[in-house]
Nucleic acid binder design. Structure first.
Lengths: 203, 203, 203, 203
DNA sequence: CATGAATGAGAGTTCATTCAT
DNA sequence: GATGAATGAACTCTCATTCAT
């Protein structure tokens, strides 16, 4: 059995190998500008080999989005242990920005990149947006119910919070913070989040 | 002299002609999927003609970013007439989101696309981000000076406001609002802005 | 005007150039085994150039079939001057075999090759078969009317005659006469036709 | 010995397995459009396995031609029992057309396809043409000897008869009978053969 | 015996770009 | 000033084939 297992493992390794090369290329040059050859070159295999692991280019992309979604889900796991909705909401903000700064490439893949949505798996990906959004909504709803907000317009509150954190991450990911020195960017983001958290109290 | 002038004018006209065709194609199909031939077809000239007006494809792109910057500047002109800094700030938010929803393609060009930054002109483009940011800062500073805010951390406030409006527009531009029916998206954005404006009062 | 004319002529020349290279390659290796690159090499142009004259590979094929059809039509022109139906029929047989032996490649294209029939123009080609068949039928009908045959089964007679001449040519074209020395093949075909002509008298 | 024998038998079985899959695929899609992988899929083995039984693709093709030849030989077996040469000749025509309509793919393989003739086995195949032709000749000769014909030009008679039956089948196999409704084609072929048989009496 | 993995070669096709006219 | 013609380089993808296991 162990032979089969090892083969399985090797196959999986190769897939990840391809995916990680693809990811860094996509991030660097954009989906359309990356060719199968580029990826093959990066992993030092022949282009044809790629096709042994993925049906076509868009399937690679889909797999990446799927992976990204899964990493993001894991990233938010700790939230499940917070019972107080307000705390959960605050922590969510922190984790969201954490994720965006740490996994810029994955974040880009999920929330920014424009790319083919043919594959079913990609539904999965945009569902991540959906899921995140839903989580925001539910948590906000819980806060509303527990009278943490004066406003009861759950939909608008959730959207507003999401827009803010997305804005923070999106500016960072797409390199629109060049007016701040690189080493200060993260700090600024965190300071802003604290400020925003305070602003939320007026809601 | 007037012949040279006319020629100059005609040349300029042609450039705009090309750019406007290119813009609408980029918008429709994305930068990478637009070929010089597509643009040439759109303006009913031969591909070779394009090269009389632009050195290469990326120069067209750069010119478009330049254009976008200029359209954006014009869009914000009315602000100059508002003397009260708070009013100016509020109106700025409205105009920003207006611009993003109305000229999604230009916004994308300026604040989202990961551009080939080879051309000098593109400096211009990122300067727009700079300029917008500076305007935010200055207006915030004016508000601080006039005691509209309790906080005096101008930098963080400006960044926070910008992140929020960018978030709103970025989600819209890159089609991450699929959980809302299309016809409600704009309304939601505006309602959120109103909410955010109120949140700002706590600052 | 003469410049345009010359250009037109050159363009036409190039088309013919491509077509004639393609024809001989198709004949030699079969449609599927010929690549655009092969054709390009044969005419010493780049593959991309081919696409300036034909939309794709199958269009080249279609054009060839169209040409073949037209050559065949011309080949049969002299028949129009023969008023006597029997003479016309006999002469038709001679011309048919002439054509097949002389333009084996074109004959192959029209009556033997298996290839894509996507293009409208190819309808044209199979219409040649149709047309030839119709001519056979009409001429046979005329002979029947003029009592050259005892039988009145026009359909079967026409089909029988066509099958025979096609058989003669098809064996020749696809090189199934290897049991006869090359220099005797044509003579044999002609002697057979004479024999067949006599056989027809019994009909 | 019996182990070796069984192994031999199994090997032979596998060969036939591959060949029959290959044949039905060639028939369906044409030689060039069938890939080794297709064949492998059809027999549910890996592509590499095929190479344990055949050196390369063209060897499969050659083997198929060989097979076709053998099927054809069997098809004509019953003739051996007819002693009267005229009867044998007539029956030969019937069987020939039978074979062509029933095993169009095999017929194509033997008498129409422009084959890669690299392999020695293909000699075998073209020998089938030879053999058929020889049989025609011998039978015709017997008829001549027995005064069934007035003509004594055996060669021309044999060739003429063969050309006719080949024409009938070739038009059918390569789909050049589109002007007749599919269900009438066979009937027409048979009626024509009857007519042709009568024509032969004049020889 | 059978195969999974790998690949070089090559398929059709498109593109940005050049240049003589 | 405009362009038709041309092309080298690149694209995605498939194939026949090999070889270590």
């Amino acid at each position: 059995m162990s032979i089969a297992e090892r083969k399985e493992r090797e196959k999986e390794e190769m897939r990840r190998n391809i995916l990680s090369a693809a990811l860094s290329l996509f991030r660097e040059k954009g989906y359309d500008s990356v060719s199968i050859r580029n990826i093959a070159d990066a992993i030092e295999y022949s282009p044809a080999t790629i096709y042994l692991y993925f049906r076509d280019k868009s399937e690679i992309f889909a797999a990446l989005q799927y992976e990204a979604a899964s990493v993001m889900r894991n990233h938010f796991m700790p939230l499940l242990q917070l019972e107080n909705p307000w705390e959960r909401l605050i922590e969510f903000g922190h984790l969201y920005i954490d994720f965006g700064l740490k996994h810029s490439d994955l974040y880009d893949l999920i929330f920014i990149i424009r790319a083919p949505m043919e594959h079913v798996e990609n539904q999965e990906c945009w569902n991540v947006g959906m899921t995140v959004h839903k989580f925001f909504s539910e948590t906000v709803q819980a806060c509303v119910d527990a009278r943490y907000f004066k406003s009861t317009d759950t939909a608008t509150i959730a959207y507003t919070l999401w827009a803010y954190v997305h804005g923070i991450v999106a500016l960072f990911v797409r390199d629109r913070m060049r007016m701040y020195p690189p080493e200060k960017r993260e700090e600024l983001a965190r300071k802003s989040l604290t400020m925003f958290t305070k602003m939320m109290e007026v809601l």
